[in-house]
C-alpha cells in the first residue's frame, strides 16, 4: 500500500501548475511594486515583445525533448537579424534577406550538429564555441553598429492586433499547441521522447538517434535565425546585442516548466510559454520601476540556478512516488 503524495507535491510535478503558480507570484509582485504594468497597452507590448524568444522557445522545447540543448541560440538570433538587415539593405528584397538568414542558420546548425554528434560532445558544451563565434560574426558583419532595415508594410503586418491581442501572440499560442501535439501524439514525437529519455534504448529499438539529433540542431538554429529576421522586420533595425541572453531566458523558462537539460523531463510547450511570459513580466516590472539594467543579468543568473534547483526538488518529491517503501 503506497501512501498518496501531498497535493502540494503533485502540483510541483505538474508543469502547468508550477508555471501558473510562478506567473501568479509575478503578477502579485507586479501589482504591489508597479501597478501600472496591468494596463492593456503595457501587457500587449510585453506579449508582442517576446515574439522572437517565444518562437525559439517552441523549437528549443522540441530539441530539449530529444536531449539537445543549444546555448548558441541567442547569438544565432542576433546573427539571423543582422544578416537579414544587411542583405535587405543591399538587395532591397525582404525575401532575399530571409533566405540569407535561413542559410546562415542552417550553416551554424550543421556546424553544431557535426561537432556534437560526430565528436560525441555534450550539446551544452559543444555549442559554447558557437555562442562566442556567432556573436563575434554579428559585430564583424554590422561593423559594430546597428543596421537599419525598415520595411513599413512588414513592420505594420507584424504589429497588427485584434482588439488588444497582438496577432503574433495568437500565432505563437497556436504553434505551441501544435508543438505539444507533435511531441505527444505523433510517431516522430514519440521517437523524440525516446531519444531524449534514453538514447541507447532508443537506438536498440531502431530509432536513428544520431540522425534525429543532427536534425534537431539544424532546425533549432534555422528557426532561431528566422526569429531574428522576424524581430528585425518588426522593430526595423538590428542591434549588435540583439538576442543576448535569450538562450538563458528560454532555457530558464523551460527548466522551470519541468524540462531537463540532460533530455527528457515532463514539461510542455504551453507551460514553457507561460514561464517565458512571467520572466518577461519581471523584466518589464524592473523597467517600469526604473531599476538599473544589469539587474536583468542578475535575474537570468538566478533563474538558471533556481530552475535547476527546482528540478532537484522535483526529483526528491518524485522519488518516493516511484520507489516507495511503505513507510508512512
Amino acid at each position: 500500500m503506497t501512501s498518496r503524495p501531498k497535493p502540494s507535491a503533485t502540483a510541483l510535478l505538474s508543469p502547468m501548475a508550477t508555471s501558473l503558480a510562478f506567473l501568479a507570484i509575478v503578477i502579485v509582485c507586479g501589482i504591489v511594486f508597479a501597478p501600472s504594468f496591468l494596463s492593456v497597452a503595457n501587457l500587449a507590448s510585453v506579449s508582442s515583445g517576446i515574439m522572437a524568444p517565444a518562437i525559439i522557445l517552441l523549437v528549443a522545447c522540441l530539441a530539449m525533448t530529444g536531449g539537445v540543448a543549444d546555448l548558441s541560440l541567442g547569438s544565432v538570433l542576433g546573427l539571423g537579424g543582422v544578416v537579414y538587415a544587411t542583405v535587405l539593405q543591399l538587395s532591397e528584397s525582404p525575401l532575399a534577406g530571409v533566405a540569407a538568414a535561413a542559410a546562415a542558420g542552417v550553416a551554424v546548425g550543421l556546424f553544431n550538429s557535426v561537432l556534437s554528434v560526430r565528436f560525441h560532445i555534450w550539446p551544452l558544451i559543444a555549442t559554447l564555441g558557437m555562442l562566442v563565434a556567432a556573436r563575434g560574426l554579428v559585430s564583424v558583419i554590422s561593423g559594430g553598429s546597428s543596421v537599419a532595415a525598415y520595411t513599413p508594410e512588414l513592420s505594420a503586418a507584424l504589429k497588427t492586433a485584434i482588439g488588444p491581442v497582438p496577432v503574433v501572440l495568437v500565432g505563437v499560442v497556436v504553434l505551441a499547441v501544435l508543438v505539444g501535439w507533435i511531441i505527444r501524439y505523433t510517431r516522430w514525437g514519440n521517437h523524440l521522447r525516446a531519444v531524449g529519455g534514453d538514447d541507447v534504448a532508443a537506438r536498440r529499438a531502431g530509432i536513428p538517434a544520431n540522425r534525429m539529433r543532427m536534425w534537431l540542431f539544424v532546425v533549432v538554429a534555422l528557426v532561431a535565425a528566422l526569429a531574428g529576421s522576424l524581430q528585425v522586420m518588426r522593430t526595423g533595425a538590428s542591434a549588435v546585442n540583439l538576442g543576448e541572453g535569450v538562450e538563458l531566458l528560454v532555457y530558464g523558462a523551460l527548466l522551470i516548466s519541468g524540462y531537463r537539460l540532460a533530455g527528457g523531463g515532463r514539461g510542455s510547450a504551453l507551460s514553457g510559454l507561460v514561464c517565458l511570459f512571467a520572466l518577461e513580466l519581471i523584466r518589464n516590472i524592473f523597467r517600469l520601476r526604473g531599476l538599473p539594467l544589469p539587474l536583468t543579468d542578475v535575474l537570468l543568473g538566478l533563474t538558471l540556478i533556481g530552475a535547476v534547483s527546482l528540478d532537484l526538488v522535483r526529483g526528491r518529491v518524485r522519488r518516493p512516488l516511484i520507489a516507495q517503501p511503505a513507510t508512512g
Partner: peptide, 17 residues
Amino acid sequence: IVATLGMMFLVSGVTRI
C-alpha cells in the same frame, strides 16, 4: 556549466549595478 554560467551572470550583473 549551468551553475557557473548562472554565477557568471549573477556576479557580472550585481557588479555592474
